[in-house]
């Protein structure tokens, strides 16, 4: 299962470290797309890609050296993460993904319309409240799902056309014949 993801990440790293390899094929694609006249400058003279590889090497080397140096630090006894003295931290207090993105989601609230259940705690001795917020996928949940369900509902409205009565089926044939003959005569 991880192999597939592994290959993909290696590919990304490869392109990152040696982008020059990608420049040629990309140029060919762009040239075929843009037809004969060369609209876009080729990738090479726009950006000097070989430097990226050159700079990637010191980045990794320095990183490795520092890693070695930092890892060699004398280690004290392993302690649980410091929770500012709170004695009974539990898993539910951990920083979740939605709280991580809460800043942006509140900021872009007018676009994303997050679904929020439960809200502020009121009063001095409030009883326990639940809070849940979820940002539905704008395309999938807001457009595709309701749209397709609506379409399916509309289409199922047409189901009476195949209601099982044979005489109606024969009527279809008669009507098509009449329509075509009249259309032909007109």
């Amino acid at each position: 299962m991880l192999a597939a993801m592994g290959i993909l990440s290696l590919a990304c790293a490869g392109i990152g470290l040696v982008p020059v390899l990608m420049a040629k094929p990309l140029d060919r694609v762009v040239s075929t797309l843009s037809g004969t006249e060369q609209v876009l400058p080729s990738l090479d003279n726009l950006v000097n890609l070989s430097w990226l590889t050159v700079l990637a090497i010191p980045l990794l080397v320095v990183g490795f050296i520092l890693w070695k140096w930092a890892a060699a630090t004398p280690r004290g006894k392993e302690q649980p993460t410091w929770g500012c003295g709170y004695l009974a931290p539990n898993a539910r207090m951990q920083y979740t993904a939605s709280s991580f993105a809460d800043g942006l989601v509140q900021g872009m609230g007018w676009v994303l319309w997050p679904k929020i259940q439960g809200g502020r705690v009121r009063g001095f001795f409030p009883f326990p409240r639940r809070f849940q917020s979820h940002v539905p996928d704008p395309v999938l949940d807001r457009v595709a799902d309701p749209g397709l369900n609506g379409a399916a509902f509309l289409l199922s409205g047409l189901r009476f056309l195949q209601a099982g009565h044979m005489s109606i089926y024969l009527m279809y044939i008669l009507l098509t014949l009449l329509v075509l003959l009249i259309w032909m005569v007109v």
């Binding site: 189901r159 195949q162 209601a163 099982g164 009565h165 044979m166 005489s167």
Partner: peptide, 10 residues
């Protein structure tokens, strides 16, 4: 009677 003959429907 063809009324019985109408069970196959969509």
């Amino acid at each position: 009677d063809t009324r019985q003959l109408a069970e196959l429907k969509d």
